[in-house]
Every structure is written in C-alpha cells, then in structure tokens.
Design a protein around this nucleic acid. Structure first.
Length: 267
DNA sequence: GTCCATGTTCTTTA
DNA sequence: CTAAAGAACATGGA
C-alpha cells in the first residue's frame, strides 16, 4: 500500500499523536517481523520518549530521547494507526505501543513489512536519493549508469527511493515516456521532463493524502483520495484521459505496467 | 480452484 | 565479475 505519498501521509497524521509522548507499554509483538531477529523491543522502547517521526523514502523513522532510532516499513499491506486503547484489536496486529491516552498499532496481514532497529546507524545505507528533491542532472547521471527499462529503474530503490508501481506509471505517463524505453537512451530533455513529472505527481498525491486501493489508510484511519486521479495505474483497457486511446497493460520487472501507446510512444 | 495485489530480497541466468 | 530477470515471501479478494 505504501509509496512515498502514503508513507508521508502516515507520518504527518501520526506526528501530532506521538511526538513528545512517552512509550509506557509495548505489547503483542510478533517476533518474525523484527529486524534484527531477536531484537528486544520492550527493553529498547519502554519508558523512552519519541522525539521525532520522519519519512525517508518509504520508511517511517522514529527517533527516541536516548538517540536510538528504528523504522517501520509498511510492505504491501501494512497499516500504522493511532487510536484509543479501548478500540478492538484487529487480526494481524503485530505491535502495540501505548502512549498514555493513545495507542499506536502496526497491522500487516501479508507481513512484507517490518520493524527495523537502527540504533545510531544512518537510515540511508544503500537507498537512493529522495524523488522530491533530486535534481534532473543527478537522475540523468544515475540513469546513465544502467541499461534497462525506465519503469524498472524507477522501482529500484537504490537508484531513486520512494517510488512504487502506481507513481512510476503515473509519472511516466505525465512525462510522455514509454515504460520500456531504455535508461541510457533517454536524452537530457526527457530526463528533465521525467524529474518534473515525478515531483508533480508525488506532490499532488500527497495533497490528496495518497491512493487507497484496498488496505492503505493514514494514521487517523482515513483513506487517501488520489486514486480517482490516476491516469494510468490499473486502467488497462480503459480510454486514456488525454487522447482516448485504449490503455495497454504489459509486465515489466514482474509488475503490471499500464501506459498509453499514443501519449507514450516507443521512440 | 485460479490469478492478482501499493514491496523487497534472494537466487538464477546471461 | 556484473546486471537483469525470476522466484519467493504470506494473506486475502475477485
């Protein structure tokens, strides 16, 4: 469920409930979603105060008053919500943090997500730059280092971090670039256009509080409304909103990819 | 029963 | 050796 706009929305809706609050209880931890395995979460978190909550790529990073940090990744179906302690505990709830009058709960049926302890280590190892602040020149330099379909490259978190299957398709459509175009063959002008499209699409999605397909909700349990504005994602067989051409679906890097053959020509 | 799903990582192949 | 394609992970909905 979570790409950059969804994760950003979770962070901003969680902050007012959690920042400055002391963790008074740690409950119902399912240990197979902890990294490193065997992490003693109770020892690490009990009686610590949450100093800040930030987003890095698709990661929700918690900083504690002792300087330690950890992050939660929502995987495909993860939800991180804040609510009253007397709310019923739903299935697949793996972690509950008590913060006095609210509880933060992490649910994730498929368990592709998890809780990752950082300690004092940086969160940045091996993941690429933020798409909202990357320069066209940096993206161009990074794309030149590889030869593969641009869609696949946008999903590679080491190349650029935070974009997923929805916003890759939306950004490529906005930039008028065919998803199968090879990275090293894109000219500087096209990469400039793509950089702008990525930022525009992500900013608009953040404004709409993300895209809810099935699972995603913000920390306040509200769904995002950006789905109604999707121009390509999950619209195979439907008419392009710009030119009425039937939207095509292909598989790239094992992921469904929708594009407009007219607006996004092969060359 | 089948296929598909907002993600990442490990394995296999070229 | 590297890069890219493919499989695997676990659950639920259509």
């Amino acid at each position: 469920m979570p790409e950059l706009p969804e994760v950003q929305t979770v962070v901003t809706t969680l902050q007012p409930h959690a920042v400055g609050q002391k963790i008074t209880g740690v409950h119902s931890v399912r240990t197979d979603i902890l990294s490193p395995p065997g992490l003693r979460l109770l020892t690490c978190l009990k009686n610590r105060t949450i100093t800040s909550i930030d987003r890095r790529a698709k990661r929700i990073v918690f900083t504690l008053d002792d300087g330690n940090r950890f992050y939660i990744h929502l995987g495909m179906t993860g939800r991180l919500t804040a609510g009253p302690p007397d709310a019923p505990t739903l299935p697949h709830t793996h972690l509950v943090l008590s913060l006095g009058d609210v509880e933060i709960r992490f649910r994730d049926p498929r368990r592709f997500g998890g809780i990752f302890w950082l300690g004092h280590n940086p969160c940045d190892d091996k993941i690429g730059p933020e798409p909202l602040t990357i320069s066209a020149n940096e993206l161009l330099a990074r794309l030149k280092k590889t030869r593969r379909a641009i869609k696949t490259a946008l999903l590679d978190q080491r190349l650029i971090a935070g974009i997923g299957n929805i916003y890759a398709d939306e950004a490529l459509f906005h930039a008028g670039i065919h998803p199968r175009r090879l990275t090293h063959r894109l000219n500087p002008d096209e990469v400039r256009r793509l950089t702008q499209s990525i930022k525009r699409v992500l900013r608009q999605a953040i404004k709409a509080k993300g895209s809810t397909l099935r699972d995603y909700v913000a920390a306040d349990n509200q769904p995002g409304t950006y789905r109604q504005y999707h121009k390509m994602y999950d619209r195979a067989g439907q008419p392009c909103r710009k030119c009425n051409t039937t939207i095509k679906r292909i598989v790239l890097g094992g992921r469904s990819t929708c594009f407009c053959p007219n607006c996004q020509p092969r060359r």
